[in-house]
Design a protein around this nucleic acid. Structure first.
Lengths: 141, 141
DNA sequence: CAGAATCCCAAGCGATACTG
DNA sequence: CAGTATCGCTTGGGATTCTG
């Protein structure tokens, strides 16, 4: 991820009276929080965190759980999440190799929020589906 | 942790002949909930919903708020969200044209969850940044 | 202002093959 | 099992132009 930030996140933060450091603002294009949000909500990031919320899992277990992910993308996703401090890679020596992935405390908080969102959506899918039909039915399509 | 292993919902065929209430499972590749999740957590979907959580906004206000989005992508994102029943497009006739976007009740619930996630991340960014440095420092890169 | 349509490059991603 | 490396298709999405 080419993060060529010559100047780091500075959006016109108005009067910060005290020595309060500029808050991170995900709406600002170059705020580092934006890339983390993208890792978390990206195509595979959210599902990966969701899967790990339930259990510590090994690489191939994860692959099976997150239906449709390729090895490459899972590996890549895991690296990004590990780098951001949301996931820990726990490798134990031996043969065959044994590696487990687990959430950090922060990762657990994030995945809790994410799972709340996922559950909400799953619950309300009938509404969504109905809306789509209405939309497609008249001039929408 | 919510319900641990109560998810035996392994269905490959979302369509059940009789009124079987097969649950939507976002982990399944072809579940319709997956596409909605992607609209919501996609690159611009989350930020758009987040922006609309605060206010009803017009197209160009939205564009300014969601820093970095192009007209095309905003338009596209808005359509997807409208189709899924999360956003309402409220157009009033006149010249110049006046169009507002507003969340539906479901959209408001979703954006509340999303905003919780965003806020959490913004708050904990120092942790994330520290993790990145550690990771990059010792051979991770 | 609000948005549709077109063009087009770069990034995303899957398939495959290879390593330890 | 747990990955990395390479290749090439597909897509995302920015820039630009055009309508009402």
């Amino acid at each position: 991820m080419t993060e060529s930030s010559a100047r780091t996140a500075e959006e016109s933060a108005p009067a910060a009276p005290s020595g309060v450091p500029d808050a991170f603002d995900v709406f600002a294009r170059s705020c580092p929080s934006r890339t983390t949000l993208e890792h978390v909500t990206g195509r595979w990031g959210g599902l990966t965190l969701g899967a790990l919320h339930e259990d510590t899992l090994r690489f191939n277990q994860l692959r099976r759980r997150v239906d449709g992910v390729s090895e490459k993308m899972l590996s890549q996703t895991l690296h990004a999440l590990e780098r951001d401090g949301l996931v820990v890679r726990d490798a134990r020596p031996g043969n065959p190799p044994h590696v487990e992935y687990r959430l950090t405390p922060l990762g657990a908080e994030v995945s809790t929020r994410l799972l709340g969102l996922i559950t909400l959506l799953e619950d309300r899918m009938p509404e969504v589906l109905a809306a789509r039909e209405t939309y497609d039915g008249r001039g929408g399509k």
